[in-house]
Design a protein around this nucleic acid. Structure first.
Length: 462
RNA sequence: UCCUCAGUAGCUCAGUUGGUUAGAGCAACGGACUGUUAAUCCGUGGGUCGUAAGUUCGAGUCUUACCUGGGGAGCCA
């Protein structure tokens, strides 16, 4: 007989039909004559209750059905006699797939700290919280593809191994097949890559943007969605060394179009979660973050505030607040400044635009004032920067002048510059940190708890 | 990387001015209970006090270094 997933069973009318259910035991309770098993198969946060008449089963089998054990149950789906669930299964036969030694199985019928669960990341999927988080993570990944596909964007696979360090987006992980114990050197002491796998220095990507722009300037609208690597020694609840990023890139979009897309996109994802992950969100709302669902709805209903960097500096200066870091035009905004704008002054997501060019990347389109660039950062409560983007500099002369000014490796960027030489076009794009989105949507507070196997400084377990 | 707090039973923690045999709740195990909902009740076992040095008659407690983790900051998504 074919197994039915618990998600389906719970929607089925309890008319006494025989069903097969397979899953992992969450708890077992009862006495000598009757035993209740809460069974979960991951398809939903809800368990199905299996009712066992102890007299009809082998005592040693029942003894082996402990928290964490895997079983298959064949029985009749009936209306529950107890409260707390509508349907339950009267067990006919039980097959034990895998025992779980209760003395050593780390998950117990009690709450565990997030820190402890991180140490048992291979088993934490079996908890309500992480089950909910990773079902939502999946739903968000699916919704991202659906949103862009419905809008006529093409999913472009940009390389994970890159030959340039031109992005300037942070420290990179080297990729090599050389024997690290004896690295060939040039006469000047630099590394000789001639005999390395690619015959040149290569790294893991820190951003697919530059390649994404190449796609946009012929396919029109593209997006990337893949892993990204930063070798920064960042130890915070918002940073990972390996994370996933979504980077749409659109031909003929100016900065306003870019902001409109970013806002619509994030709101689409939030409403997708509310519509499709309701039970998991309700659980997280009850157990993790009481304000979660209200906050999601609030973001959905309100326009993001859009102001320029210059206006933001004026607001911060006029606030009369005492800052740990001084506010002043030309200085980068600190976390305390962004938090004030988002969480106190406006109390909603804020998009900051037109930053001083000195503190932004070389590829951003320069404004006519010659001081600012068409950048945009989307700031979210509790998370900070969730999106960073810009209109791109499409003018060859301005772009190359900026590259030389910032002493970028011009030669490595010949292919990027070619797009400005041959049929250049105004275009824009942004990067959304996938895990930061998941943080916001789930109400979790540490980014290590929204990716299955976090990679952080000094930690690559599992 | 910087600042800060922490590391004691499987988990979450208590442990006094340094003092004799290191405690609790939960979990586990044994028992009781014919419908439980993180079941309840009775009982039992469980510790190299993060690691290494040092101070001292004596260190879970004090000192130093290191390791690991949390929070904050920087870098950013």
């Amino acid at each position: 007989m074919k197994r039915t997933k618990i998600k389906e069973l719970l929607k089925t009318a309890p008319v006494g039909t025989e069903v097969v259910v397979k899953g992992w035991v969450r708890t077992k309770r009862g006495n000598k004559s009757i035993v209740f098993i809460a069974l979960n198969d991951g398809s939903t946060i809800n368990n199905i209750q299996v009712v066992v008449d102890a007299a009809s089963f082998d005592e040693s089998l029942l003894k082996d059905i402990t928290t964490g054990a895997c079983i298959a149950v064949t029985g009749n789906l009936v209306e529950s006699q107890g409260q707390g669930q509508n349907v339950e299964i009267n067990a006919g036969t039980i097959e034990l797939y895998g025992k779980s030694d209760a003395e050593t199985y780390p998950l117990q019928k009690k709450g565990h700290s997030m820190e402890f669960m991180r140490e048992i990341a291979h088993l934490r999927f079996r908890t309500n919280t992480f089950g909910a988080v990773f079902r939502i993570r999946h739903a968000m990944a699916f919704a991202i593809h659906k949103y862009f596909n419905d809008k006529g964007f093409f999913y472009l696979h940009t390389p994970i191994i890159t030959g340039s360090d031109a992005e300037g987006a942070g420290e990179m992980f080297h990729v090599t097949t050389m024997d690290l114990k004896s690295i060939p050197k040039n006469e000047d002491g630099s590394v000789d890559y001639k005999n390395d796998f690619f015959g040149r220095e290569t790294n893991l990507t820190v951003s697919g943007q530059l390649e994404g722009e190449l796609g946009a300037l012929s396919l029109g609208d593209i997006y990337t969605f893949g892993p990204t690597f930063r070798a920064e020694n960042s130890n915070t609840p918002r940073h990972l060394a390996e994370f996933w990023m979504i980077e749409p890139e659109m031909a003929f979009y100016d900065l306003k179009d870019n902001m409109d897309l970013a806002e619509e996109f994030v709101k689409y994802l939030i409403s997708y979660a509310l519509e499709n992950c309701r039970e998991d969100l309700d659980f997280l709302n009850n157990m993790i973050d009481k304000g979660l669902i209200d906050r999601l709805n609030f973001v959905l209903k309100n326009d993001f505030v859009r102001i320029s960097y210059t206006e933001a500096v004026e607001i911060l200066t006029a606030s009369g607040k005492k800052w740990e870091f001084q506010v002043g035009w030309g200085r980068d905004l600190q976390a305390e400044h962004e938090r004030y704008l988002v969480e106190e002054h406006f109390n909603r997501p804020v998009i900051l635009t037109d930053y001083p060019k000195a503190i932004k990347a070389f590829y951003m389109k320069q404004n006519d004032d010659n001081n600012t660039v068409r950048a945009m950062d989307v700031l979210f409560p509790g998370i900070g920067e969730i999106i960073g983007g810009s209109q791109r500099e499409e003018n060859y002369d301005k772009l190359i002048a900026r590259i030389r000014e910032m002493k970028m490796p011009e030669k490595d960027l010949w292919w990027y510059l070619d797009t400005r030489k041959f049929g250049t076009a105004p275009h824009s794009g942004f990067g959304l940190g996938f895990e930061r989105l998941i943080l916001f949507v789930t109400g979790m507070s540490n980014i290590r708890d929204v990716i299955p196997f976090p990679r952080t400084p000094k930690n690559a377990e599992f």
